[in-house]
Design a protein around this nucleic acid. Sequence first.
DNA 1: TTCCCTGCTAAGCACCGGCT
DNA 2: AGCCGGTGCTTAGCAGGGAA
Length: 234
Amino acid sequence: MIFTPAFEQGKLLRRYKRFLADVQLSDGSEITIHCPNTGSMRNCLFPGEPVWFSTSDNPKRKYAHTWEQAASNEGHIIGINTGRANALAAEAIEAGVISELTGYDNLRREVKYGSENSRIDLLLESEDKPACYIEVKSCTLLEQGQGYFPDAVTTRGQKHLRELMEMVKLGHRAVLLFVVQHTGITSVAAARHIDPDYADLLAQAHQAGVEILAYRCELSPSAARLIKSCPVKL
DNA sequence: TTCCCTGCTAAGCACCGGCT
DNA sequence: AGCCGGTGCTTAGCAGGGAA
């Protein structure tokens, strides 16, 4: 995924509302940008450190700029736009980067499924084999050298796991794919200290046949892409 | 006075049906 | 096909109401 033009750089001042952050530009002026991350952004907020943002030409937007990446106080790059995770995953699948997910004829996004009126992030189909349901999760929490998911209690995430298990029961393939948008994370673990219920359910889903994958991203203000798999500790 | 719970809001985007 | 308005969905943070 190439970003043209490349993201512009600023310095994070504060994220003072759920959707808004203030950023200082190199000339000293301050702007408010949209923050496209619905999570807690635990360990992703480093006031005073660099951030990068894109600019939309959509005239209906109140804030033209979108926060895309942040630098941690250790110099790692963090992709904070959760919407990019799905696109990065789809692009990587189509490019054959994810070896576990090759050999399908068709890829569809946001397809309705399950009994709880949900939508699956990605659906892979071929005539000669079971469909593959993929739920994409963006992993950005780094603590003591370990990557964790989730970064806050998530009942919604539990619902997704239940639905993936349901797909396995119906004879389909089901995959939970962690897109690691943090250059300092080399392995992903269930955040039992944050959401023990989710950690239990993740282990249960794995036992039930849900495949759990994680892939690291290469991130820069001009491009992002999935590069290689990394281990998941359950 | 303190605590808990509920409800609302923020901005963007995807989606839907109705229309041209 | 494309545009439009309306709706739903995301979660942290806060206000306000009610109970202890």
